[in-house]
């Protein structure tokens, strides 16, 4: 046993000595740092063998670090990581949640293109994303720029713009469905009396072809305050000197925006667009509450992917199929996020 230890010690010490030589010869500071760290590790290993310590300093350090992470990580692993893995498996199974599951291969995915309700849900979700992402981005950027000026009552305006974001969805969708009520609401009343729109031409905001537009408008209204705050934080990171230099060169407001603000905000915009896209694909409660009526059922004109995931899982107990739809959702989010990452990288190079 002791011999073994001595041999190991010998080996570590020669290794450390060899590293020392390398460190002397190395010119690149980064590499030098790495080598020094490596040598320190080896030396402390040797030290712990010499001092007969059972736990090396590294092991202790690791244990302390893990004890910080553990409370969160255990919960995260059990309630997030494992279900995610489970979801991938489930998409290839047939299961009703109580009887024994059976392997289904790709048949769940093969059913998707023939399912008209799924196709409608996919189409609506995509339209919703394509409509909401750019509109919210532009609105929140414009609002952030305005609120970043020297104006009075800035705090008040910011707070008000953020209100819809913190307000609960059930409450504000209830208000919206009253304000946009097709026969009794004030919006249609104004259209009727002030703008002279015919009674029979009054827009049916929550059904048919208009419902997606209503969802998009609602989302922009609700979420622009949140992204405005992110843009505000981004704007405050831009140095005032850039604008002074721009003024000296005689740049007008629009040129300053185009050549200073917009390029400086690139990484913020990237973040905003990625988050917006992910959040838009998740749309469910907005659709159910605005277009679902009393029983919360969505028709083909207003259905979205998450609604159909929910339906298949908790109403039809077709868990495999529901997971297959969830995979489609995941893949779309993944692909779009990757494209955006690629694009961001290409531009920054």
């Amino acid at each position: 046993m002791d011999e073994k230890k001595a041999a190991r010690l010998q080996k570590l010490e020669t290794e450390a000595a060899a590293l020392m030589g390398k460190i002397r010869a190395e010119d690149d500071i980064e590499k030098k740092k790495q080598l020094i760290a490596k040598r320190e590790r080896i030396q402390s290993q040797a030290n712990s063998i010499k001092n007969n310590r059972r736990i090396s300093r590294e092991a202790k350090r690791d244990l302390v670090a893990y004890s910080f992470i553990a409370p969160n990580f255990i919960g995260f692993a059990v309630f997030t990581l494992i279900p995610i893995l489970f979801a991938f498996v489930l998409a290839f199974m047939n299961w009703d949640g109580s009887n024994a599951p059976s392997f289904a291969g790709l048949s769940n995915f093969a059913r998707l293109p023939q399912d008209t309700f799924f196709v409608a849900a996919l189409k609506n979700t995509l339209i919703y994303v394509v409509g909401t992402v750019p509109l919210t981005m532009i609105a929140s950027l414009a609002l952030a720029i305005v609120l970043n000026q020297k104006i009075r009552a800035k705090g008040f305006f910011r707070t008000v713009a953020f209100f819809p974001y913190v307000a609960s969805l059930v409450a504000i969708t209830a208000v919206w469905s009253m304000i946009f009520h097709p026969s009794k609401g004030p919006v249609n009343y104004l259209l009727l009396t002030v703008f002279g729109v015919d009674q029979k031409n009054l827009p049916q905001w929550f059904s048919g072809g208009l419902v997606l537009l209503t969802l998009i408008l609602f989302s922009v209204w609700k979420y622009m305050g949140y992204y405005m705050v992110i843009y505000l934080a981004g704007l405050q990171g831009i140095s005032g000197e850039l604008y002074e230099a721009g003024s000296l060169d005689g740049a007008n407001t629009w040129q300053k925006f185009l050549y200073i603000t917009w390029p400086q905000l690139r990484s913020t915009t990237f973040f905003v667009v990625v988050m917006l896209t992910i959040n838009c694909f998740k749309v469910y409660d907005i659709a159910v509450m605005l277009a679902g009526g009393g029983d919360g059922k969505l028709s083909t004109s207003a259905t979205v992917l998450v609604y159909y995931i929910y339906q298949n899982a908790f109403n039809y107990w077709d868990l495999g199929y529901s997971s297959a739809i969830a995979m489609v959702l995941f893949l779309m989010v993944l692909v779009i996020t990757l494209i955006q990452f690629r694009y961001e990288k290409k531009i920054s190079e």
């Binding site: 997030t80 489970f86 979801a87 992910i278 998450v306 899982a313 868990l319 989010v333």
Partner: peptide, 20 residues
């Protein structure tokens, strides 16, 4: 492990999570 799940909508794994 944390970062990879940030872009993962909860709706993707809500069903297996419920079963668990």
């Amino acid at each position: 492990a944390y970062i990879a799940t940030i872009a993962m909508p909860w709706q993707v794994y809500m069903v297996p999570q419920f079963i668990m």
